[in-house]
Design a protein around this nucleic acid. Structure first.
Lengths: 128, 128
DNA sequence: TTACTATATGGAGTACACTACAGGTCAAGA
DNA sequence: TCTTGACCTGTAGTGTACTCCATATAGTAA
């Protein structure tokens, strides 16, 4: 089993050491393995959690949601239905967010095309 | 020209009166038309700005970016190239965010499918 | 005129997600 | 042994985007 330090995890995932400690403190990842002297010594599994939380945070899931998922996970197999439901809820949120972003991009594209036209012709019609 | 009150704009767009005043204060929308006694009296154009900022904020653009766009707009036609560039930059950001969300959804879907399997068979393999 | 309601302003407070810092510990090299 | 560097904890501070509140004023109904 390979173990790596917090500075290596920080480099590997592009998250600051403070952020890694913060995620652990608020429970967005489970407690990380430590050396006898108390220094964090990330296992591959610990890294997997870091990777997961980085991905989910990037998409906009809250740290509280991640912490809830971790809590359920640590409670064992009887929480599998709740964990599934949590993920489904978050997926639904992302589906909605995807739609909002696509609609906004359409609007941005329309405005950009009008600016292109204005720049080309020197005229801006029906502004906003 | 139709004018409406802040409470009507609030209902129409689902933004609180405080939020509407806040957007105006920080410049995310231009100054709203007022009655002689100083009460906001939104024109259709004012409403158009509210609609725009609601849309952009929903997609994650910052109020500061909106305020910058409004500043440029109020400076007149010579800022058209900058405004176009601002919109293009934001569109690029959204394109990237779209990708992140899609990747995250793939990951969520994979995990959900594994939970479905676990619930069906009673076995969870290679858990996280 | 009085009372009520909607709106105004300025400023303080909240929630979230970090981020920075002070002070302490520990292992390894000179 | 001494020093250095990386790490630790706990706590305070920051930025963003609201949200709430106290106090004031204007327009309308009774």
């Amino acid at each position: 089993m390979i173990h790596i330090t917090i500075s290596e995890v920080s480099k590997k995932y592009g998250l600051s050491q403070d952020t890694l400690r913060y995620y652990e403190k608020v429970g967005a990842i489970p407690p990380v393995h430590r050396t006898k002297s108390g220094v964090r010594d990330y296992t591959e599994e610990d890294c997997g959690w870091v990777d997961l939380v980085k991905c989910m945070r990037g998409a906009g899931l809250s740290v509280e949601v991640m912490a809830e998922y971790v809590r359920l996970q640590l409670q064992g197999d009887e929480t599998i239905p709740q964990r599934r439901q949590l993920l489904v809820d978050q997926r639904d949120q992302l589906t909605a967010q995807l739609q909002v972003i696509q609609d906004t991009m359409k609007r941005l594209n329309y405005k950009i095309s009008r600016y292109d036209e204005a720049i080309k012709t020197g005229v801006l019609r029906w502004d906003e």
